[in-house]
Each structure stands twice: as structure tokens, then as C-alpha cells.
Design a binder for these strands. Structure first.
Lengths: 131, 131
DNA sequence: ATTTCAAATCTACAAGTGTAAACTAAGAAA
DNA sequence: TTTCTTAGTTTACACTTGTAGATTTGAAAT
């Protein structure tokens, strides 16, 4: 069964990214990893952590006086949902237009292009096979 | 000079899409086009229109007792900004990963694939030429 | 056992958003 | 000209988000 993933705000996402990277992680580590980079007050970061717990995007285990946080929502799940909703919201579901725009708009290295072409080749083989 | 484009909420975006499609457009047409599809109360749609005007995303000219709305922010500008911020927010700026994921995750027709491959070919030619 | 310290929790507040009712004013109808 | 409609404007309210100070509480130190 697919679980409904909670909405995660932009700031909260920054916290999630760290938790996905290092799991489990203490609030201290999260604060160290973000307060400078984002110029956030440590208290602010704690608020985001608390909200993520409340939203069930993360959870924790006690370790002495502090907590060890770990993700409940996986990055994969999250990515999938965000991708879909962006695709829908901005491109009304037209993947080709989306991909087209990003390839046009952004810079891709030659290796990137080659990699993507290879992927498209495989994709094509698959689709002709299963038709 | 690049103008700062205002933030446009999800609901407001639905209104923008209509205004981009038919320009100029009356509030009546907007309401007709959206109230059912989104099951929004007409009053709600009027709020979105008002807010878009306040944000300077759209503007209007009087026509008798009602207004003719037109976009101030173009769809192109908007797309560009949204693309960039999505890319940054979700993929930390890695276009190749983004494109990769969408190609993997979504369904592409064979024509789509061919089109994209052609585009990548051109892209590659460009990049080798200007290096 | 008592004090201290800081991690976690609670409270706060403005701006933005979804949602819509109430009000106003200016054409349209009579 | 007076009245009626109704497009547009104002007001409202709860929830989310960014931002962070104040308070509590339980482990650590003495």
C-alpha cells in the first residue's frame, strides 16, 4: 500500500536532506550542518525538526539526553512524489516538454549528454519490445 | 534588466494558465474555465484574480462594467524561474540527475524519445563546436 | 541529593494561502 | 430617474511557513 507522504516545506526539506544523508543523526549535527550555510538560528532549525516529527516525516530514538533522528519518508518516495507534482503543476503532465525545456535551458556536459542518450536508447528498446 | 517575478501560489497558477492561454480574458471566462474543473467557488476565483493583480502578475483594462485581464508575467519567464528553483531545490542543481529521473520515472512515447535524442545530438554538436 | 546545563518543548507572531461571505458601486433594465 | 444586477472590493478566518524567544525537564556534574 502506498503511504501518503506529508507535505514538506522548503526549509524543512533542507533538514530532510541532511537526515537522508546521515542516518541516524543528532539535532546537533543537523544544526552544525545547516545554521551557517543557511544562516539560520539554531532555534529555528529545532523548530523545523519538531515539525518534521509532528508530520511523521522523521522519527527518533532516545540516546542519553538527546535524540537520534531518522527518516520515515524515504528520499526515493519523496522525489517521486515531488517530480510527479511538479510535472503536473507546471507541464500538465507532459514529460517530453519538461525534459525538453531542461535540456534546452540548462548546461549539460558532453558526458551527461552521452549518458542520457544511452538511457534513451535503452528506453526505446524496452518500449519496442513490450509493445 | 531582469524583472523580479512575483511568487505565484498553486491555485493562482491555475488562473495564470488560463490568462496565458487566452489573453485578454474576462473574469467570467476565467470563472467558467475553472470553477467546475477545480470545484472552486466563483468568489474564490475572484480572490485569486485580485491577488494576482496586487502581485503585479497580471493587469487589466476596463471594458464596460468589467475588466479584461492580461498577463504581466509571461509564461516563459515564469517557467524559467520555476524550472531553476525546482532544479535547485530538489536536485541541488544537477540537471542530469533531474532529466535522468524523469526519463526513468515517466512514460515516454517512441516519438518523444526520438525527438529528445535529436535534441541531444544537436546539443552535443553545439558543445563540441564551442569548446 | 542538589545544582547546573542544555536539549527538547511550548508559545508567539507576521506573511502567505485556501476558502468564501459581505459589501459597494456602476452599468443595465425598467 | 430609480431600481436591480452583478463585477469588483473588503473583510474574515483557519492553516502553513519562516522566524525565534521563553520554559521545562532530565541527564550530567558536584
Amino acid at each position: 500500500m502506498k503511504k501518503n507522504i506529508p507535505s514538506i516545506s522548503d526549509s524543512e526539506l533542507q533538514v530532510m536532506k541532511l537526515i537522508w544523508k546521515k542516518n541516524p543523526i543528532t539535532s546537533d549535527e543537523i544544526i552544525n550542518g545547516l545554521s551557517e550555510k543557511m544562516s539560520w538560528n539554531p532555534q529555528t532549525i529545532k523548530t523545523f525538526i519538531t515539525r518534521l516529527v509532528k508530520k511523521k516525516a522523521i522519527s527518533y530514538n532516545r540516546l542519553g539526553r538527546n535524540y537520534l533522528y531518522y527518516p520515515v519518508v524515504t528520499q526515493k518516495e519523496y522525489l517521486k512524489v515531488e517530480n510527479k507534482s511538479f510535472l503536473q503543476k507546471i507541464y500538465d503532465g507532459a514529460v517530453d516538454r519538461l525534459v525538453y525545456n531542461f535540456i534546452e535551458q540548462e548546461d549539460l556536459s558532453e558526458e551527461d549528454i552521452n549518458k542520457l542518450q544511452k538511457m534513451l536508447d535503452n528506453k526505446k528498446k524496452d518500449s519496442t519490445k513490450n509493445k
